[in-house]
Design a protein around this nucleic acid. Structure first.
Lengths: 356, 356
DNA sequence: ATGAAAGCGCTAACAG
DNA sequence: CTGTTAGCGCTTTCAT
């Protein structure tokens, strides 16, 4: 199918390109002109060329959500929230992954070239290089993830400190005393903040013995491998705090391999409260970091930034909440923690207990 | 940051825009011109405007993967495979979701406007309207998912018939005789083909009593709800074949609610062999439909189509393979099916048995 | 209400 | 090797 241009439509309709353009865009034109043009466009199968239109108008009506780790369902959840907001404002949202194939700096630079009217970024690592590119990019940006406070970039963040406090307080209350934190890479933004949050949280609990290890990344497999190292080591904790749900699920699997009962022998918690947390058995206690809310907030910030580029940068922090499931209940015999418990009366997959 | 154009760079470097363009694009230019231009570009923070470049060149160097159900991890897996191939050829890949927010027809029509040089589509439903739009879209398309044979559109498909046969043969061999198929919506492409495949497969097993129900969609929650209906009904099967892994996981949860042991009381199988199948307990027996392979094949077809638009349309079918895990083992007491089995010697998350 | 013409930022002939 | 010029397809003054 060869591309048909507005010139051809105009010729076919017997009017000038200007009239054709006006008719097509609903600007002032006589009814008969509109009719002729629409008929011609229909007949020829005309669709306006997006690049030409964008060049002329200076807008693409397209926004992008660029994410480092699309394998993590929490980012899918955020994207869905973003899409809901921006599509209501007439924008199309595309997703761009900045994985190992292309660095986040390259992606941002590329996107800055005018393919999109704005972008929301969820980078795993905020390097100086990335900040430099971000500072001089001509397209509006909001970062979904912690940013150094000095930056004048719109920013939506979770509250890792409170999240870790909720988890540690909960474990302490359930009687756990030897807690190991299985972090993701601590040179990532979430890794660094969750590490610091954990340290601060356990500092408030002198009765707790705390240790930390790092998984290679934020995946089930890496969590599994890291937990195997922990469990085969000299000290066997009675609780493992995972830096996210995927790592937490890997930890549960590793505990199972070692013949340990969760939560009987060892409690496990995650972060993000993804759907998976409610699906594995035992259910994974997790901190909800408000993915939907963060996605929504980021989208709204971006739309406002586009509307008013001179507006001062905002930072929004979303409050976390703890969702308790079977994986972290107290050691005392508790029928609720049994995976064969009868749920016949339930209609919900996640038999959870709100807290925090 | 205001956009800086090549005109400004040229002026700053004291050369013509043509020379600036040539220097920037590595075409013939004297070393000193190149130096001056690069220096000027650097200093001004010049980035070529993508829309202008695309308009002029007639290419965007951008491909899109449009998918209906981004919540299903199998599509993420396919996208990753697609990205690997296309990025090796210098294209950027973006993902576009065609969910409830925008129909697939709208997405295709929109994308056809020139934002991308090609697209790979994974639609849930192939309507006549979609086929009509596809037939007249000026940008190369390959469809990842079954297409009517009459279409002259590049197409990569799974082999649902063989997939269902593998599952049913396996269950029959394991001694199951009362098998219920929990399909997704049968008005979707995968739903229709898996339904037909199941029917054909059980037809070869007169010893099996077969029934079917439909889940509202291909999600864990819908699978859970559908399975609850099945299990609270008059006839309780000794095996449930789920139309995909997510539904299968929901089925396992429902069985648990009813106090049924999987696979002791009831076997469960899935389709897609996603990572989740190896993570739930018991491990979910699943048919691998070759997501990686299909993604790769689709990407290659698209690149070839872009290179040679006149090339006849190809159809590629990828062969499935059965991956047996604990959820479908024989009813006879088998320690391997116990969720608390000791896996200390394993280093892999998926203790699976290849077959088929 | 309509047409002629300019021009968005860039690349590619074409002359020199 | 370089500068001048045309033009990608579209929208938008500016006259009429």
């Amino acid at each position: 199918m060869a591309r048909v241009t507005i010139t051809q439509v105009a010729a076919h309709a017997g009017v000038s390109v200007a009239s054709a353009s006006r008719a097509l865009n609903g600007l002032i034109a006589s009814p008969q002109t509109v009719a002729k043009v629409q008929h011609a466009a229909e007949e020829l199968g005309y669709v306006a060329d997006a690049t030409a239109q964008s060049l002329k108008r200076g807008r693409t009506n397209q926004l992008v959500y660029a994410v480092a780790d699309i394998g993590n369902p929490v980012y899918v959840e955020m994207m869905t929230a973003v899409e809901r907001v921006v599509s209501a404002s007439g924008y199309r949202l595309v997703l761009s992954s900045m994985g190992t194939l292309s660095s986040s700096v390259d992606v941002v630079r590329d996107l800055s070239r005018g393919y999109v009217d704005g972008m929301i970024l969820s980078p795993l690592r905020v390097t100086d290089e990335l900040l430099a590119v971000l500072a001089k990019t001509p397209v509006p940006v909001v970062v979904l993830g912690h940013l150094p406070d000095s930056q004048s970039i719109d920013n939506v963040r979770a509250d890792s400190r409170t999240a870790m406090r909720l988890v540690v307080d909960h474990l302490a209350a359930e009687g756990r005393r030897d807690v190991t934190f299985v972090n993701g890479p601590s040179d990532t933004t979430p890794g660094a903040f969750r590490r610091d949050g954990f340290a601060a949280a356990v500092a408030a609990h002198p009765e707790i013995l705390a240790r930390s290890v790092e998984a290679e990344d934020f995946t089930i497999g890496a969590g599994y491998a890291a937990a195997r190292r922990v469990l085969s080591g000299e000290f066997r904790p009675d609780a493992i705090v995972a830096a996210n749900d995927l790592i937490g699920i890997g930890v549960i699997r590793a505990a199972e391999d070692f013949g340990l009962s969760v939560p009987g022998d060892i409690a496990v918690t995650g972060i993000d409260n993804t759907e998976l947390a409610g699906v594995v058995r035992p259910g994974l206690t997790s901190v909800d970091l408000g993915a939907d809310e963060r996605g929504r907030a980021a989208a709204e910030l971006l739309l406002q930034r586009i509307t008013d580029p001179a507006r001062p940068a905002h930072t929004i922090a979303v409050a976390p909440s703890l969702v308790v499931r079977g994986s972290s209940l107290a050691r005392r015999p508790d029928p609720a923690s049994s995976p064969t418990r009868d749920h016949t009366e339930h209609t919900d997959l996640n038999e959870e207990r709100e807290a925090g």
